[in-house]
């Protein structure tokens, strides 16, 4: 694999330097073939080569139950993944969040929900942290709106999570089932 990688980088370098050295290359109509070749080379080495790597199975990488899968679709549809990551990195910032993410953990994740931003906490290992009731209350409205609500499970003062009161009861149940499956 590394041989292929080095060959690809070499090929790219030759095209790139050739383009710079032969000023006339563009006028000779070599722009389009060069441009296409460069992007294909990069695609082969950074997408196809890693795809050929074997992914060892992990305990986390198991199929979702039907209900959890439905919940996952809602998770994707409502854009939960814009604010919640599902990756634990091997660095100080992520210590204490649970096991470090392995490639095998995501075997049944499509589309991926790794996330890019952590406005809310990481959800890789959220299963079992809270009761189902907590999640339901939290999803409908994460903040306490009356004094009575302040003591309720799942009501967090200062949260900026959007309320998902528009989801049906079944949808909320499915979403909770998904969250409780993230071990």
């Amino acid at each position: 694999m590394y041989t292929a990688l080095i060959l690809f980088i070499l090929a790219g370098t030759i095209i790139c330097l050739g383009g710079i050295y032969y000023r006339k290359s563009i006028a000779l109509g070599l722009l389009v073939p060069g441009a296409v070749l460069l992007i294909i080379i990069a695609f082969l080495s950074t997408v196809v080569l890693p795809y050929r790597e074997k992914i060892p199975a992990t305990e986390k990488g198991v199929p979702y139950s039907e209900k959890a899968l439905l919940g996952r679709q809602i998770y994707v549809r409502e854009g939960c993944w814009y604010c919640h990551t599902q990756q634990v990195r091997p660095i100080r910032q992520d210590e204490g969040l649970g096991n470090i993410s392995q490639p095998g953990d995501y075997q049944y994740d499509y589309p991926h929900v790794l996330g890019t931003e952590r406005t809310g906490p990481d959800l890789s290992h959220v299963a079992g942290k809270y009761e189902d009731e907590w999640h339901k209350n939290h999803l409908i409205n994460p903040r306490p709106r009356t004094l009575q609500e302040a003591g309720m499970a799942g009501k967090v003062l200062g949260s900026v999570m959007p309320p998902f009161s528009f989801l049906s009861k079944e949808e909320i149940d499915a979403l909770v089932a998904y969250l409780q499956s993230l071990r």
């Binding site: 997408v47 890693p50 899968l69 953990d105 995501y106 499509y110």
Partner: peptide
Amino acid sequence: GGKGPVPGVND
């Protein structure tokens, strides 16, 4: 979603 044509990491 679910198991797709490529694993989550590759996706």
